[in-house]
Design a protein around this nucleic acid. Structure first.
Lengths: 342, 342
DNA sequence: TTGAAAGCGCTAACAT
DNA sequence: ATGTTAGCGCTTTCAA
């Protein structure tokens, strides 16, 4: 026998469709006794609601906007692609996604873009943005206006909004540190760290986790001051080369930010004899190639596709007033070696 | 303006719903000229079909069965739970899943169970089974009878069936080997390997990949013959303890199979001074705890939930005669350290 | 070759 | 408090 429907329930409970629907959706206007009868029928028949049909009838569509920086790093590119893909093919059921990008370094424009949403607020806003007072205020305004907010990739701890979707960057830094420390022989050496800006929360957190592990487990390694390269490949190349030339005893490099093309270049032109242990973030064309060729030893990554899909699911759940299962929405900090590249 | 529907197309093309539907589903009985008109309308309006509504109208339901061993290892338990969960809550749209388990060591019963499906074949069969001639024949028979087959976790290379859903175990073994080799100091030492049976394809493949890496990159390590413990914790505990007592120069253990509780016990009772590097497979309660406590150094894993969801998606696609996107269905070989536990 | 109309399982006005 | 009824976007007889 095929799956029971609302009709079957109505029949066995001896009520009408409308009443069944009221019970199913916990709407008022049904006698306790009737509710009981309906629930018994539901139980007895083993009814499970056909969500697709329900959504179809409900005609509910979710109108989301996704705000992200336009910076030209590979990772951000993939993240934008992931959004674009979902937006294009309406991959997610009955959700419309409107992606808007802001100039990466212009938090003023960002705040304005977010604030602008307040007059015609979408159902939800997935947001990847640094937290500045201005941004915080703008986000709060949109929230007041009725939109659900989900911070993506970078958390917005001072705004009391939805479940953050992204990795724990302190843990990511710790992971990098552990791998790097264990890969190196147990003797004194220097370790170089390059990042975007230390004012960027995520990079700072990674560095923090990295340092924790170094201090706890690998005291024989001395970590040089972070090279801030603003995620720009040319800068990374220049500064790494210079650093490498200056210090002979650098055994490893931890690249906590973007611009890894520059790192690869610097490594290629450096003394071939000096085989360094290198760990970077995000699985991109560049880091994948570096891993394959043996230039990088490990890559710590978060999956862009998972991030945006999860963010959208969380938004949907929030709009529907449903609970999310946190364990299912937790973004994993993945480790890739040459051997386990997907 | 909201998403265009079949009605909109019918209107702009000046035809009826039925005709639009015929064109949409490439059914015969429409003049070339009319097809063109309809396609133009589709193009012009940017129509994308509402799959949920289509499936609802079609009344298509997918009837799948999932055959898996009943062995009491944690990983298999989670795999079965994942199937049970999907089966219970009809999580996947319009698919009914019937899980059947067979006695893990009885390939005769297994072959019979599979063969039995031939008389009333389901739409699809997701199968985790060792490949024996008998099994192969039974699978072929079900296939003849019209069922789509997807091998899960363990491949069925001699059967020409659907896309295998699981990890590349050679690569997994290589990953373990690389990690283990790099974690160890660069000096001669012995490495112990424990597995279920070498007749089990997956364990043999892991061992193969592991040995490749040892030979290629870590010649200073000598790998002892595999301890076959049939995935049983007591056996693992006994044999590992014995081996540890016999050889003083064992620096690391690679556990390619199940029964890791036994390994943990053996390690706990062994000489506390001997801090070994340990790498095991599958993220379970046991290995997670071992990782947290520092008993294990890394765990190589495949996600049970992903595996069954992917298998079901692949089956559905196959039944529908659709292409699967291989990159999206590839199961990842994950690496977990204490630091990046989810 | 084309169209009209009756659903699929569910929801939501609008009646009663 | 409960029932009737008309859809949601699409498919599918059955007629024309």
């Amino acid at each position: 026998m095929s799956r029971p429907t609302v009709h079957d329930i109505a029949q066995t409970a001896g009520v009408s469709l409308a009443t069944v629907d009221r019970v199913l959706n916990k709407r008022p206007g049904v006698r306790a006794k009737t509710i009981l009868r309906v629930n018994e029928a539901i139980e007895k028949l083993g009814y499970v609601r056909d969500v697709a049909a329900a959504n179809l009838a409900r005609q509910r569509t979710y109108d989301f906007v996704c705000v992200m920086p336009d910076a030209p790093t590979e990772f951000l590119g993939e993240l934008r692609d992931a959004v674009a893909e979902i937006a294009a093919q309406g991959a997610m059921d009955r959700v419309r996604v409107d992606m808007r990008t802001y100039p990466a370094d212009d938090t003023h424009a960002l705040a304005e873009m977010i604030g602008g949403l307040a007059k015609a607020p979408p159902d939800g806003l997935a947001l990847m943005a640094p937290e500045t007072p201005r941004v915080r205020d703008a986000v709060r305004r949109v929230m007041q206006a009725g939109a659900s907010i989900v911070p993506m990739v970078a958390d917005l701890p001072t705004v009391d909004c939805g479940h953050f979707v992204g990795i724990d960057n302190v843990a990511a830094g710790r992971t990098a540190g552990t791998l790097l420390g264990r890969f190196l022989p147990e003797r004194p050496a220097r370790v170089m760290v390059v990042a975007g800006t230390m004012t960027a929360r995520d990079h700072a957190e990674r560095r923090l986790g990295f340092d924790q592990v170094m201090a706890e487990r690998f005291a024989h390694l001395s970590v040089l001051p972070t090279l801030e390269c603003y995620d720009r490949a040319e800068l990374v190349a220049a500064r790494v080369s210079e650093m490498l030339a200056r210090h002979q005893d650098i055994a490893a490099i931890y690249s906590a930010g973007a611009g890894n093309q520059g790192l690869v270049r610097a490594l290629a032109s450096a003394d071939a004899g000096a085989r360094l242990t290198v760990i970077a973030h995000e699985l991109t064309e560049c880091t994948r190639a570096a891993l394959t060729e043996g230039t990088f030893d490990a890559v710590i990554a978060q999956n862009p596709g998972h991030i945006v899909r999860s963010a959208l699911r969380v938004l949907r759940a929030e709009v529907d007033g449903m609970e999310t299962i946190p364990s299912q929405e937790r973004i994993r900090t993945e480790i890739f070696l040459k051997e386990n590249l997907p």
